[in-house]
Nucleic acid binder design. Sequence first.
DNA 1: TAATTAATTGCGGTTTTATGCAATATTAAA
DNA 2: TTTAATATTGCATAAAACCGCAATTAATTA
Lengths: 248, 248
Amino acid sequence: MLKKERQAYILHNINLHNRLLVGDLSIEIKVSEDTIRRDLQELSDHGKLIKVHGGALSKSFHNSFNSASIYSIESKKIIAQKAASIIKDGMFVHTTGGTTIIEMAKALPESLHATFITGSVPAAFEYMLHPNIEIILIGDKLSKTSQITVGGSAISSIKDIRADLCILGINAFDLQHGLTDNDWDIVQVKKAMIESSEKLVLLTISEKLNTSQRIRICETKEVDILITELAPTSDILTQFIKEGIEVL
Amino acid sequence: MLKKERQAYILHNINLHNRLLVGDLSIEIKVSEDTIRRDLQELSDHGKLIKVHGGALSKSFHNSFNSASIYSIESKKIIAQKAASIIKDGMFVHTTGGTTIIEMAKALPESLHATFITGSVPAAFEYMLHPNIEIILIGDKLSKTSQITVGGSAISSIKDIRADLCILGINAFDLQHGLTDNDWDIVQVKKAMIESSEKLVLLTISEKLNTSQRIRICETKEVDILITELAPTSDILTQFIKEGIEVL
DNA sequence: TAATTAATTGCGGTTTTATGCAATATTAAA
DNA sequence: TTTAATATTGCATAAAACCGCAATTAATTA
């Protein structure tokens, strides 16, 4: 049994029974207790479970100290944290499915009661792990490159749902060209999402700012909030603030 | 064996068994372990699999331990193989998203060109890993317990698509009560899938045969093909053959 | 086609990782 | 407090991964 498999088995087990004993597990999968302990240590370091004397406990029991924010050095995690903070109970939120959005989904607090609308399979997967989030899946033909549904049916479904926020992980944004992308189908979907939402929120790492691509999604003035890994006081961001965009 | 062939072989293998060991594979296809490692590195770089110490794991690995207990997983793989064999190029196939279906998705040959229609997030995930499969995702409210979309909109979308096969992973089936289940929403979805397909195929481990639950999905005579882990000559299956069901 | 270039592969030596064992320290329960 | 169970630590060993190199093979170009 490979180490990763063993750890997956441990996680599965602990999510099922909420607790486990080192001794039991050692016999069950025929490795020394030391190895189990080391696995538990590692999983605990990654915040997947709580290690205690004699075994481990599921995180869902003791989730008071959610380690998510402690370790978030990485840009996307910073963005995710900021984005998660603007979503309030009861909101309806349109989202796409880029890596930044996935990070955001992971960063959502367990207490949040909200409804997410998405055509992205990996995003739906993340949302499903949260206890209090309702998910509306947008159906249509699934684009394999982007792992999101695209097409007329998807667009009309999106337009049926009036949301509070539209949170987009983006590819390119500058003042002159506005929000742009390079995939026609995705652009159509994003346009529909923007249309049927009150506020438009962009998530992006700063290096995508001041770049542009071929197809326009919307103009600069339609953007309400811009979230990057940088502090709002950062030089690159002042131009956007001048245009009336709220920068977090 | 050429590099491309070898890598294709590796991918096929890993999608089938979820895991592989460098040593095993080295012996199996008679190249050095270094070569295997380099292949795995490359495939890992392209996101086709997850490389770990000692071997590699399938990308869909995190689902593999989730609900299937180890003992029935072998049965499900046998079922998956048989099911995969009845799907031909060009077919449209309605599927649900149980563990058996997931196994089937993993067992589909890379060469298969077909279109799968599903409201299941994990199933969609699996289908996405295959190069030649088109996916139509059924949208609606996502049920967290079953990880599948349910509701009126899902049902009407399903009815819009006339398929060749409807492949259901099932909960209970006996001659007297027919096909039954215990979740109202899921039953409605399955009914719609059956209605809009030419043939109805059931996948199940044999222990679910001759059991029944509260809500009827369809009658015995509507079932075309039954697939279990047992040989078609097995005693338990003769009763179904007598009813005119094709048993694989 | 021949010659050159690039890619692929296997091998030896080195480094890293995984794991078990034993000695010691810590914890928790009687 | 005493005692039995559990953790920690350092160490040994085997397996696996990595690195550079040379031999081979495939692809490109003259």
